[in-house]
Design a protein around this nucleic acid. Structure first.
Lengths: 252, 252
DNA sequence: CGCGATTTGTGCACGACTTCACAAGCGCCT
DNA sequence: AGGCGCTTGTGAAGTCGTGCACAAATCGCG
């Protein structure tokens, strides 16, 4: 849902003047599709670990929690090479998706703000296995600088430019308090960072060539709260209460 | 994006047979709107703290990072009472949104999985100020049981049913490893929990009356990686590089 | 008291995404 | 070789969401 994402797609409709990628010419994926590819990828890895060689769109869709038609359409954007009557080759599909997402190279990520949340993120093992590694930690608080987390030293934010350049970092995670987030973002942008994952509960202003995605825990809870509220209202006078009927997968 | 959310809306088109809420009859908000209300709320609180009494849709939209027409349309669903020529009354609007989201009552939340991430979430102060408080912590690991975090003791998951009933919990957060998430979800559901925020990288199967929202850090990064990949391809032969032109707010 | 400036609320058209339904293709079995 | 069952890939219809553009409403001021 990043509004920023739209800008890229809109400005090159169909002119294939700028094709000289190793990628066979990515055919302008819809935003919604890009948002689901990682989910497919995760499901595929799980299937591969379980020893599957091929999957049908039906199976994979179930594993990823989506409609199978949607899945097929999504994959068709990648010049998908499933074979009719059989399904998709798991390892081949994994490679294709990883390629499209640019996950071949392990991308270096900077993490700014080593508070409660930042600390946890720094220690999160899941990154490495999914195409990323945290290459540097920063904090504005001198008291935290020098601390070692998971084999990485916390540096002061004043060293940001230097380290980002040195490590070739283009993606950063902001896990600072809200009031510090904008200035951190500005600093990151001026260092050449072009993608930001923001955990601070605030809106960031960035140049249009920079992508921002936001994760706000309180917002997620508030959305759930709404549905909870709604459900509470409806159960006030239930005609037939369908307490525990069907187990049914719901998507992300 | 929660596929589960759709089910509620679809089954009551326009029959207002079941209106007896304290809410003047919530007029079936679109999903997309519900997803933005919390953002508006946060922006409004910020404005209120800054001493604003009224806001125009333009101002508030900017603060929330959205289009002003969209904002107005969203608010119109809430029987919005802005005054033309003036704007919206800040405190009044805050109360209305909080009411619609069901945030009047501080909702009790259970947190399952006190590992790296769970620990951070338990210590996150932002919840309390946003309408929630964590009422109980659980972990399956006996070694962690008994630990005190932020004034709350970690309990063993076997006590889940008991505590959830006692505290009147209907929302839970899953911060366990992926392999444990489904069984935790099952346990939560059978305790009566009807909303789950899932941080584990996996798809959960739940009955259709249960809402699940998912947050996956690796997925967010992979989406950014895609855009990064894309940008790298485009900058290969740039006509004019618009490095730092306009600062421009981008949305959630 | 009326006028102009301002801002909300919304009809409408457009675009994006989803879903259905089915033709096209592939492999297996006889 | 041919037919049959299965699964992909995709046209087309339907649904949802967005954003423009403007009428309606309110305030302040002369």
């Amino acid at each position: 849902m990043p509004a920023s994402a739209r800008s890229h797609m809109s400005q090159q409709h169909n002119d294939r003047s700028a094709i000289r990628t190793d990628v066979p010419d990515l055919p302008d994926l819809p935003d919604a599709t890009v948002g689901r590819l990682p989910e497919y990828l995760r499901a595929l890895h799980a299937l591969a670990d379980a020893g599957a060689d091929v999957v049908s769109s039906e199976e994979l869709a179930a594993a990823a929690g989506v409609n199978s038609a949607k899945l097929r359409k999504d994959l068709s954007y990648l010049r998908s090479n499933g074979t009719r009557g059989v399904g998709y080759d798991v390892t081949q599909l994994i490679e294709k998706i990883e390629h499209v997402l640019g996950l071949n190279q392990h991308r270096a990520v900077a993490l700014v703000g080593v508070g409660n949340l930042g600390h946890a993120l720094a220690g999160y093992a899941g990154f490495g296995s999914r195409g990323f590694h945290i290459a540097a930690l920063f904090d504005a608080d001198q008291a935290r600088v020098g601390e070692w987390i998971n084999g990485l030293a916390v540096r002061h934010t004043s060293q940001l430019a230097e380290v980002v350049a040195q490590e070739g970092i283009s993606i950063a995670v902001i896990a600072t308090p809200a009031h510090a987030a904008q200035s951190v973002a500005d600093a990151l942008v001026s260092c050449g960072v072009t993608s930001i994952l923001n955990f601070a509960p605030c809106v960031l202003s960035v140049p249009e060539n920079v992508d921002v995605r936001k994760v706000d825990l309180a917002i997620e809870l508030q959305i759930l709260s709404f549905h909870e509220h709604r459900k509470a209202s409806l159960t006030a006078l239930p005609s037939t209460l369908p307490s525990v009927l069907g187990q049914e997968a719901v998507g992300s």
